[in-house]
Nucleic acid binder design. Structure first.
Ligand SMILES: [Mn+2]
Ligand SMILES: [Mn+2]
Ligand SMILES: [Zn+2]
Ligand SMILES: [Zn+2]
Lengths: 149, 149
DNA sequence: TTATTAGTTGATAATCATTATCTATTCACT
DNA sequence: AGTGAATAGATAATGATTATCAACTAATAA
């Protein structure tokens, strides 16, 4: 329903607007992290963001990347995919729960077309008595590239 | 389809049989961990298992609990629910992927009735080109108890 | 039975992603 | 320019899990 792709520039503007709205400063470091997130399709880790930035921002520290990610979390502008065996991954483009396809070989994470989970959620709520506020759905397997080998 | 509850005793016997089949020893420590897992409905953490055992087995160490869990993982007899913000949780009764309801207040994790995900999986495979071998589906919300407050 | 060998336990140290702490720097506003 | 709050970055701390290794146990052989 809301799964149409918006441009990285638009998304970047959205994130900046939200931070400004809540009176956070858009520092060069934050801007750089936000730009990476808005342009990423592959759900980067904090370390991956740091590595992309260290060339252009020699003083950038991992702590700042983590802090910016946490700021975006507090402002509802990023979706965190938690993992315990590997680093967490982030989606700055779709900061709401949605399914993911995760390649167990190369670690790629992509967004499949969003399907309707409302029916499933309602059924679960009825049958368990839970109030559902969020969900996490990951499919694990091999991406087309890794499949070839 | 295979979601009918079997007795803890039967489940315990199954796990023991699998380990013996693969020529692992059933030590008192392993037996104790398996028994807890077979009798648990609440998806315990490693620490929780350890705490339940330390009274009866004063020499039990957390390392042994972790080792037994990993042994069960290698033998396909336990499902690990990974978390990064809290300890991993384990289901020794249903060691195959299935959805979970997770209470964000008290940490309870329960198994809802299993629904058919084959259709959903097929659709995802067609549309993304992935080969899906596994999935993870968590619903987050408030359990009936926490809801009352 | 005793010896041999491999498997297992449990204490301890190591790992590693993430967070906390603290100081220097930058920014917003006077 | 001056003042106070926000931020950056270096560094230490955290905590669940894993690695290491010596002591113990069990299975088998001599
Ligand atoms: Mn995504
Ligand atoms: Mn379960
Ligand atoms: Zn792949
Ligand atoms: Zn609860």
């Amino acid at each position: 329903m809301d799964n149409q792709k918006i441009s990285p520039e638009t998304r970047l503007a959205q994130m900046i607007a939200k931070l400004k709205e809540n009176e956070f400063r858009i520092t060069p470091q934050r801007y750089a992290v936000l730009r990476i997130l808005a342009h990423s399709e592959y759900h980067p880790s904090a370390e991956s963001i740091y590595e992309q930035l260290i060339a252009d921002y020699p003083t950038m520290s991992p702590a700042t990347v983590y802090k910016t990610i946490n700021l975006l979390k507090k402002n509802g502008e990023i979706l965190e995919l938690e993992f315990s065996e590997m680093s967490n991954r982030y989606d700055g483009n779709r900061p709401y729960p949605h399914p993911h396809m995760i390649c167990t070989q190369c670690g790629a994470i992509v967004d499949p077309p969003m399907h309707d989970f409302e029916k499933l959620k309602s059924k679960m709520m009825e049958e368990t008595g839970f109030t559902i506020s969020s969900f996490r759905l990951d499919f694990f397997g091999l991406c087309p590239d890794c499949r070839k080998e």
